[in-house]
Amino acid sequence: MRLLRCGQDSLLVELDSLEQVGALHAALVAARLPDLMELVPAARTVLVSARPGSTGLAAARAVIESADLSRPPDRSPRTIRLPIRYDGPDLDLVAETAGLTVDEVVELHSGAEYTVAFCGFAPGFGYLTGLPEPLRQPRLARPRERVPAGSVGVAGEFTGAYPRASPGGWRLIGRTTAILFDPRRTEPALLAPGDLVHFEVAR
């Protein structure tokens, strides 16, 4: 673990794995520190921001230094079900790379349970872990200038869905009609770290 100061009121905690990120994030949430303003988990880091002028950063540091990073988060996660049509432009490429048929790719991807490890890239974009090993493939050599909203892709150890149209280099295997981000909702982002996600084949 390495702690890096980010300005007067934030710390960036560098960790060795997604599992450690989840454990530290859960420990900080459970501590309910009154002056903690924001927690931003990522693939190998957690950004901790405290109320300016408070002792929140010192309190957070004490939690960080005493956290058991080998302990899985103790949580009761929500389960989110996303409808998906497997008709993405890279579906055949993913199947060929994995040495599978398209039907086997669909079965593997829709049969797995995923966890939202962290959110980023765009509002509402969740990086989902739990992708079956054969589907863990590199990004496209040339990213697309525009990926349609709702596109579901795979890249490395992650799968995820694009909340809005944007550039992107993930291999696209399908699309969902779920609204992943809506600023008019009380909770604009549909997915949050720790949520469990299932893809359900749309008929």
Rank of each mutant, 00 (worst) to 15 (best):
50 A>V: 11
164 R>A: 14
75 R>T: 14
92 D>K: 14
48 V>G: 04
196 L>K: 13
44 R>S: 14
93 L>D: 15
99 G>F: 12
134 P>A: 09
67 A>T: 09
48 V>P: 07
67 A>G: 00
168 G>P: 08
194 G>H: 04
165 A>H: 03
162 Y>I: 09
194 G>D: 11
36 L>S: 04
103 D>G: 05
54 S>K: 12
98 A>D: 05
82 L>H: 06
170 W>L: 10
166 S>M: 10
7 G>F: 03
44 R>D: 12
40 V>Y: 08
46 V>N: 01
200 E>C: 02
180 L>Q: 10
168 G>N: 05
50 A>N: 02
65 E>Q: 13
142 R>E: 15
73 P>R: 01
75 R>Y: 04
50 A>C: 11
82 L>N: 01
1 M>W: 10
191 L>A: 10
22 G>Y: 04
163 P>L: 11
52 P>F: 08
109 H>G: 04
113 E>T: 15
33 L>Q: 06
109 H>Y: 08
86 Y>G: 04
185 R>F: 06
12 L>Q: 11
203 R>M: 03
58 A>M: 02
31 A>G: 02
142 R>F: 00
84 I>R: 02
135 L>S: 08
52 P>D: 06
91 L>I: 14
84 I>Y: 03
198 H>A: 07
199 F>Q: 00
66 S>A: 14
133 E>G: 08
65 E>L: 13
44 R>V: 09
162 Y>H: 02
142 R>C: 09
43 A>W: 03
188 P>A: 14
182 D>H: 09
60 A>N: 12
75 R>A: 14
110 S>P: 12
142 R>I: 13
54 S>H: 11
91 L>W: 08
151 S>T: 09
46 V>D: 06
81 R>G: 05
124 G>L: 00
36 L>W: 08
117 A>I: 05
152 V>F: 02
169 G>I: 11
72 P>K: 11
69 L>K: 01
91 L>D: 00
170 W>M: 00
158 F>T: 02
171 R>K: 14
181 F>E: 06
94 V>Q: 08
96 E>V: 12
98 A>W: 08
145 E>D: 12
160 G>C: 07
153 G>C: 10
111 G>F: 09
132 P>C: 10
7 G>A: 11
180 L>K: 07
21 V>M: 09
87 D>K: 01
63 V>H: 09
29 V>T: 12
151 S>H: 01
163 P>G: 02
38 E>M: 10
42 A>V: 09
17 S>L: 11
144 R>G: 04
94 V>S: 09
131 L>P: 03
189 A>F: 11
106 V>I: 15
64 I>Q: 00
121 F>Q: 03
97 T>L: 15
131 L>Q: 07
73 P>Y: 09
52 P>C: 00
108 L>E: 05
181 F>S: 00
70 S>L: 12
108 L>K: 11
11 L>R: 10
35 D>W: 13
150 G>V: 02
24 L>H: 10
171 R>N: 08
